[in-house]
Design a protein around this nucleic acid. Sequence first.
DNA 1: TAGTGGTCTAGACCACATA
DNA 2: ATGTGGTCTAGACCACTAG
Lengths: 253, 253
Amino acid sequence: MSADAARTTATDRPRDAVFLPLYKQIKSLLVQRLQQGEWKPGAPIPSEMELAVRFQVSQGTVRKAIDELAAENLLIRRQGKGTFVATHQEPRAQFRFLRLVPDRGELVPSQSAFLECRRIKAPADVAQQLDLRGGDAVVYLRRLLSLGGMPLVLDDIWLPAALFRGLTADRLAGYQGPLYGLFESEFGTRMIRAEERIRAVAAGEDVAGLLAVAPGSPLLLVDRVSYTYSDQPVEVRRGFCVTTEHHYHNELY
Amino acid sequence: MSADAARTTATDRPRDAVFLPLYKQIKSLLVQRLQQGEWKPGAPIPSEMELAVRFQVSQGTVRKAIDELAAENLLIRRQGKGTFVATHQEPRAQFRFLRLVPDRGELVPSQSAFLECRRIKAPADVAQQLDLRGGDAVVYLRRLLSLGGMPLVLDDIWLPAALFRGLTADRLAGYQGPLYGLFESEFGTRMIRAEERIRAVAAGEDVAGLLAVAPGSPLLLVDRVSYTYSDQPVEVRRGFCVTTEHHYHNELY
DNA sequence: TAGTGGTCTAGACCACATA
DNA sequence: ATGTGGTCTAGACCACTAG
């Protein structure tokens, strides 16, 4: 692509056409390459100068595109070293999607126990949230997250089966890292952002048993839909959280 | 201030001194002026060119400072018009600090009923969170927020009495706009950011009565501390929310 | 020493709002 | 027509990292 070809002005553009700044176009090209896996999570992308030459724009324009991608946590800039594709493997990224923290004391690494891993037909509501057709298959996971032996969160997770073919109970047994880290390295699907709906509910019999609380106890219910590049939904997650000694932390700006 | 005086390099700076970019210094100066009320909420700040001349730096440097302040929601840029001090009065800013939304249907304006407005000695935990001394006075508010006649949120609010002198039940009676809008226009205190701790609890007798739910019902408990410029805490708020037909909405990036 | 991202500048031009 | 913010460029220099 040439910059001259992409450049548009008020005079050579049809009436009512949208003005798309060059750096936005560069940004799209970069996202496209990220999506295609041209640069893997954790790996460096080409230098600003190299990208400027490749796209036939100035370094400042590439810089502004990368700035926005870094602000969106798709890329990570490291002065003197380069710009890298963000990854869920780094400890820094762990707590971006795990907002439940202890009321007092340190962050303790948690243990995952996978209670279920089945391939099923997508329930209607899940299918709708994942943009799937009625009969499409999903991988259904049930995971119990514990902290120091105390059950803390029971997660039900649904993933499009088409994207997670090799995901089996065997593959999960004993896996302890962040789930999104496994997804990105083993299945090439990287979670970019998520939307959560949070409410308080009374624990049902089954959930109460697994979380070792009395039936009817108040639990935090977190419904999440996660998205990868291009706003494509790729995970539905429903978590029941015990919030007697932990809380969901949020910052408002 | 002159840019030359502010500029520091590795050679003229003592070992281990931090490098502070010019635009960060400009940013601090702008925040300082906002804090001092030199420019009021909703009003325009001087143009980039004018600020560049005043601070003896290039327009690009001022621009970068303003960019960050706009990203932090302290300023709002409007192409062709100018840059304005953000305000809680605009409809756009309403939902930045009100995250409870209906499961279905439109956002309906809510009604506030103020049940309490007293000047009291700060409880120990509140005093600590507001950086007050043991015996300092606070204004205590109790507010019931309803949607279409249905009680939705019961808020207990504590504010430093020193900052909210004229805040009385009379002043609040019948006020319907956003509370933070009142705070900024009437008391000169503008909320910039907040931290929330969210958990699920069982409704106590008193709260249940006011919210018209059965005692023991699960409620969302939102503990908030709000900050103004320079990270000064200026509000403690504890809200009990009915989440049967509403939920707390959050986006993770 | 070389290469990367980070800062700062100066100038040109475009998009948008208002008069 | 004027003034505002928004984009793009080219070049200089600084801060940081690593071989």
